[in-house]
Structure formats: C-alpha cells, structure tokens
Design a protein around this nucleic acid. Structure first.
Length: 394
DNA sequence: CCTCCACCGGAAAGCCGGGTCA
DNA sequence: TGACCCGGCTTTCCGGTGGAGG
C-alpha cells in the first residue's frame, strides 16, 4: 500500500512518515518477547473455554505496554474466530463504569448503538452475550482514569458469579503504580490476580528500536547510525521512553528536511531534543485549566522581574514567595476581568503545577519568618509566557 | 518560653452544569 | 417537565508548623 506522503511531498529524508508515528505498531516488537509470551499464556485459557485470570500491567509511558497487548489480542482474535472476544478500551475517553460497559456492549454486539439504555440493561445484555459459553476480556488502558473503578470491577466480578457458562475478565494497564492504594481491597485483590511489569528500555534497546524504524521510515542513506544512537542515548537517559525517542528522531528528521539537507545528523538530534522538550511542556500547558495557566503565568512574570520580597540574603537561585505569587495572580485576574479564586484554591493549583514538573518548590527554612513555600519555575520564563499567553487567548 | 507570623493542607459543605428518572 | 442526583470545582473552616520577636 503506497502512502499518500510520496505524492504530497518529495521528501529527501522520509520514505514513510507513519512508521515514525507513535500509533504505528511494528510487526515485531523488540525486547518484549518475554512479556508477549506471558500475555499469551495468560489469555490462553480463554481459548479453551476457561476464564483467564485478571491481569494488571504496569510500566512507564513508552515501554510498549499498549503495543504488546494490541499485538497479542490481534492474534487472539484470529485464533478464537469470534467464540471469545477482547475489547480494548481507552479509559481516558471512557472513564466511567457506564461508558465502559456501553463501549463493551457496542463492540461485542451488532447494532447496539442506541444510547439511552440504563446501566442495568446494558449489563444484562452483556451477560446474555457471554452467557452461552463465551469468554470476554476487557482491556482497560489507563485504568487509573476510571472514576468509580471499584464499582466497575465489582460489576464485573459479580457477573462471573451469576454466570453459569462463560466469563468476564479484565486486563488493566497503567503507568501509575501508586493508584492501587486508593482502591477498595476487594477490587484490588481481584484486579491483581496476576501482575506484569514492563521495564523502561535501555539505551541499547532504544537504539535498536530506532534503527528498525529508521530503516523502514527513512530513505536509505538519509541518516547516520551515530545520529540514531545519540537519539537513543538521550531518550534512555531521560526516561527509557520509546515514544519520546521516536519523537526526537522524527523531529530531527523534520529539522534536517527544513534545512534542505539530505542526511540527518547529530546536530539535528541535539536541536530536536530541545524542541521536543518544549513541545511536551506546551502540550501539558494547553490542557491545563485556565486558573492553573494564570498562576503559571504569574510565576513566570515574577521570575523575570525578580522577587520583591527576596531582599533577604540573596539565596543564589532567586525563589519566589508563595504570597507574592498569589498577589500577582490576583492582579492578573483583575486585568483580565475575571474573579480570582481563593488562596486555598491557589495552593492546590501550585501543587498541581509542581506535580506536572512545571515548577518546583521548597519549604522555607531559616531566615524567613513563618512557614511558606518558595517557588521556582522549571523552564525558561520567556518561553512559558509565550506559550501561556497564546493558550489563554482561546 | 510564649506569641505571632505567613502560610500549609485536610475535611466538609456549597455551587453548578449536565444527565436521569418518574 | 420538574425534582433529583452526580461529579468536578470552590469556598469555608480550621488545626498545624517552625522560625522570628519579645
């Protein structure tokens, strides 16, 4: 199948852009044989009419969780030929028991697309479908996004008690290890019947992966192995995240292309790294609620003009006082003719922003009266101001 | 040592837009 | 259609905290 790309741009670097996209699933996934075998072994009972045990998969972003699961379920579907099914659900979108069940029902049953049935009805229909001896495996990607996960898991376990034949099982995928802490003990034990971990990739592994993609996605001789290895090393050092590695590589290719070169080099990778960093920050900021953005903006403004309060012995890195940031934020609200939120809310925004790594803070210690937070920006203020003000337009 | 300062962050009540049910 | 409910945000209330000041 030819790609449209070849008709749209006569690219010197790219042969097939899609190969570099994060959605692309390669035919063979490197370094995940072990996980794939384990996944297959855990699904295998379903092919023999028995209920597989529930499974929880943990791994940071870009460690191949989703990719591996998708590959395995595809094989599974081929093998079972409809007698049992897997349903993949992205819980970022379907984040409530009702939506998950609706999605399951739609996926499994033809013509079940009328909205408006209540949860009990949907539930019954699913039971009916499973009831004649089928196995249904529900894959909940980003499972930590589901509200009322306890209720959903309970619903599913209860279904198994009611059924005489067939069964429902769950594969939960998450990159947050801690989320199980606020789960009801019963749901926890049911979800964790079996557990798997996807470790981050090492530099060598990332390099192999990138090389594979480069060979498929770029024209021959359009890249040096040095550049590929550098990209892999950079990403490994950062996080071991394959998606991030691919982002750097494709950004680097775009840079090389724009400057009309026909080979991408170490230099391109280096500049790509910074751009990608900014891209990620930008993405994070854009999906932030308005007030968070304004607080961030206030911090950026103040770090440019310098802290008014920090007359105390110049702590070499100039931190900002929580109080003055709040003032700046309130003023900003006034200028924009918005009502500012309470100081209490402001404090939670700060914590959220810190959680996202957009800023850092330390407890005030000696030399400062009272007890407060000293705040510092995690990125260059000019860039942040640019990004936030653009995002606040909308 | 006691009190004040300048904030922190949990708990719970309040508000609001959207969906649900009789 | 109106009463009701739910989840997401806020605000209110309030008990801490650790250094500065007296």
């Amino acid at each position: 199948m030819p790609s449209f790309d070849e008709f749209i741009t006569e690219s010197r670097i790219f042969k097939d852009r899609d190969v570099l996209s994060p959605h692309y699933i390669p035919d063979n996934l490197h370094f995940r044989d072990h996980q794939i075998r384990e996944l297959m072994s855990s699904l295998a009972p379903a092919l023999m009419g028995k209920k597989p045990r529930n499974l929880f998969i943990y791994g940071k972003t870009g460690t191949g969780k989703t990719c591996s699961v998708k590959q395995v379920t595809q094989k599974f579907e081929e093998k079972s030929a409809g007698s049992s099914r897997t349903v993949y659900i992205n819980c970022r979108i379907h984040n409530k028991p009702y939506r998950v069940m609706l999605k399951v029902a739609k996926a499994v049953m033809e013509g079940f697309d009328k909205q408006g049935y209540g949860l009990p009805h949907i539930y019954e229909r699913i039971l009916e479908w499973v009831g004649n001896g089928k196995q249904l495996i529900i894959i909940l990607d980003e499972i930590d996004m589901v509200k009322n996960l306890d209720e959903l898991l309970y619903l599913i376990t209860r279904a198994n008690d009611e059924l005489e034949a067939g069964g429902l099982s769950v594969i939960g995928i998450s990159n947050r290890l801690l989320f199980k802490e606020d789960l009801d003990p019963r749901s926890k034990s049911s979800l964790y019947e079996r557990e798997m971990v996807f470790p981050p990739y090492t530099a060598n592994q990332l390099q192999t992966i990138l090389k594979q993609r480069a060979e498929l996605g770029f024209r021959p001789n359009a890249f040096t192995s040095g550049a590929i290895n550098l990209a892999g090393a950079v990403a490994a050092q950062e996080s071991g995240d394959a998606r991030y590695a691919l982002k750097i590589l494709s950004r680097a290719a775009e840079i090389a292309e724009e400057s009309e070169k026909d080979k991408l080099t170490d230099e391109d990778v280096k500049s790509a790294r910074e751009l990608v960093e900014l891209d990620i920050v930008k993405e994070a900021i854009e999906k932030l609620p308005e007030n968070h953005q304004m607080v961030l903006y206030a911090v950026a403004r103040l770090s440019l003009s310098g802290s008014k309060y920090a007359r105390l012995d110049e702590t070499k890195d100039s931190y900002l006082f929580s109080g003055e940031v709040y003032e700046e934020y309130s003023e900003l609200c006034k200028r924009l003719k918005k009502s500012s939120k309470t100081a209490r809310s402001y404090r939670s925004y700060l914590n959220d922003l810190e959680m996202l790594g957009l800023l850092t803070s330390v407890e005030s210690g000696k030399g400062i009266r009272g007890h407060t937070k000293l705040i510092k920006l995690g990125h260059p203020p000019q860039e942040l101001i640019k990004i936030v003000s653009k995002s606040l337009e909308a």
